[in-house]
Design a binder for these strands. Structure first.
Length: 477
RNA sequence: GCUCCUAUCGUCUAGAGGCCUAGGACGGAGCCCUCUCAAGGCUUAAACCCGGGUUCGAAUCCCGGUAGGAGCGCCA
């Protein structure tokens, strides 16, 4: 068995149900599955678990694809949809009925509810009591007329199921704890635990990576797999991600779709890096390229306990990426954010140049877009505090004088501007700050920007001169 | 209630019985640098849930508490 799992190529899958967007926990599960497969030269597959016709939506399917696509976690095959495999499930169920590993149960929902209520009143774990389970010599109840029966799996009564979880270690369940779960509804449609088993089997999945809320389903699934005569996969149950406050994430409480992290200004690679380190570690290393993740990721170093999502650290990781990645790789996202705040990227300097100047001082692309807006569009006015501090009669004179000098500058380059502005300050016997800050407010609208020579260079001659003039006029009023 | 899981600085974590005077990172505090904001450099505070064992020796192994969490659907 060990030998078999060693030679068999690794196949993992991510199997979300399309009832909402791709959330952060799902993204991490997908990432772990993907990385593990890549690490072992295996395949990573995507499967959409849409058997709940009531809750599944096309919009959610699209949102999941979009999220995975933005993050860059591609499936090695066309995604599988469970709703397209109903014939297969039906055939397996028929076979099980024939083999006697499954049986019809005619209990009504009311009957089941009453059973559960009684058990809970007796402080027992609620479970199906097996009244329709055929046993040799047992007399089954009379079939009620007009009831479409469900199909239940005949779970073993004795013994135990042992899981050697790659993350949590050995977990043992007694079969006595497990009841006969429904594998097909009254209308004949299959249920989740059954579909998962058949799909993983058919798709040749060797490693099941999923949230640890599925741990309790695993022994039932293993029993079905055994009844089917299938090879058992390995399991890796990943703990959940909590909100920054330690509370469970939910739609009402801080759960965000992956695309919202894009809107907040994350780079996909950075989000991936933060996510991979949330639970997994490789010594003291914090930053990993995609290639490093793919060669180093393993389940031995995945923590079994839940982790909080720390926005501050996520921003730090994002900043590290912004600072170090080739600006060319940031352009597309930056462009997207600029347009999002109504800025036309064509109306200004090359985005790579802007990125190079701004990335040191921006943790997010939203911040970068906002701080760079002045390079592409007219000023909305001056920041009041900054204007009050740096605009006065003296600085207006200086700005006016400087404007004339810059107008005469033969070459509009950063080094030339550096010499011009520094020389101007020196000539006046002033520290650079005395002149740089008023310039900033005049051309940026506030007292924050990249180094003044770079700022003016990026802004260009025309805009710089016009804004200096406008500032002088503004102070004159 | 029953079953299962988890437990190292505020947070993410290193740690596979002696290398631990418990390391790194984020965040915090302080200092330096500085045309702003940053970035960078240096310094600093901060943790093994509790109690029993096992052992010459336990953050690490075992047991028991405690606390958190998950599951117990004709949902996935």
């Amino acid at each position: 068995m060990f030998a078999a799992s060693k030679i068999m190529p690794v196949v993992t899958r991510f199997a979300p149900s399309p009832t909402g967007y791709l959330h952060i926990g799902g993204a991490r599960t997908a990432l772990f599955s993907y990385l593990y497969a890549k690490r072992h030269n295996g395949k990573y597959l995507l499967r959409i678990e849409d058997t709940d016709l009531e809750r599944s939506t096309d919009a959610a399917v699209k949102a999941i694809f979009e999220g995975l696509d933005w993050l860059g976690i591609p499936s090695d095959i066309e995604p599988v949809f469970q709703t397209q495999r109903f014939d297969r499930y039906k055939a397996v169920i028929e076979q099980m009925l024939e083999d006697g590993t499954a049986y019809h149960c005619y209990c009504s929902r009311e009957e089941l509810d009453a059973m559960r209520a009684e058990q809970q009143a007796r402080k027992e774990k609620p479970r199906y009591d097996g009244r329709w389970r055929p046993e040799s010599g047992k007399l089954l109840p009379e079939r009620p007329a007009g009831v479409a029966p469900v199909v239940r799996f005949k779970n073993p009564l004795q013994g135990e199921v042992v899981i050697n979880d790659l993350i949590k270690g050995r977990i043992v369940f007694a079969n006595e704890e497990l009841d006969d779960l429904i594998i097909a509804r009254g209308d004949g449609t299959p249920t989740y635990n059954f579909c998962v088993v058949v799909d993983d089997w058919d798709m040749g999945v060797t490693h099941v990576v999923r949230g640890d809320d599925h741990v309790n389903n695993t022994p039932r699934q293993i029993n079905i797999l055994k009844a089917l005569g299938a090879t058992l996969p390995e399991y890796a149950h990943v703990s959940m991600i909590l909100g920054g406050d330690g509370q469970k994430l939910s739609k009402r409480h801080g759960a965000l779709g992956v695309m919202e992290y894009r809107a907040m200004g994350f780079l996909p690679e950075a989000l991936l890096n933060y996510l991979v380190r949330l639970g997994w570690s490789h010594g003291d290393q914090e930053l990993f390229t995609r290639e490093e993740m793919m060669t180093k990721f393993d389940f031995d170093h995945v923590s079994a306990s839940p982790a909080r999502f720390d926005m501050e650290k996520a921003w730090w990781v994002n900043h590290q990426y912004l600072k170090s990645v080739d600006p060319l790789l940031v352009v597309a996202e930056f462009d997207w954010h600029l347009r999002r705040i109504g800025v036309e990227p064509e109306n200004g300097p090359a985005l790579t140049a802007v990125i190079e100047q701004q990335r040191e001082r921006c943790r997010s692309l939203v911040e970068m877009a906002e701080k760079s807006k002045f390079l592409f569009a007219d000023l909305d006015g001056y920041n009041e505090k900054d204007a009050a501090k740096h605009f006065n009669a003296d600085s207006a004179v200086l700005l006016n004088e400087l404007r004339a000098q810059l107008e005469a500058l033969p070459e509009w380059t950063a080094p030339a501007l550096h010499v011009a502005v520094n020389g101007f300050a020196e000539g006046k016997g002033l520290g650079l700050g005395k002149i740089a800050q008023p310039i900033r407010v005049a051309v940026v609208g506030m007292a924050i920007s990249p180094p003044i020579d770079q700022t003016l260079f990026l802004l260009g001659r025309n805009r710089t001169l016009a804004r200096l003039a406008a500032a002088v006029a503004f102070v004159g009023q």
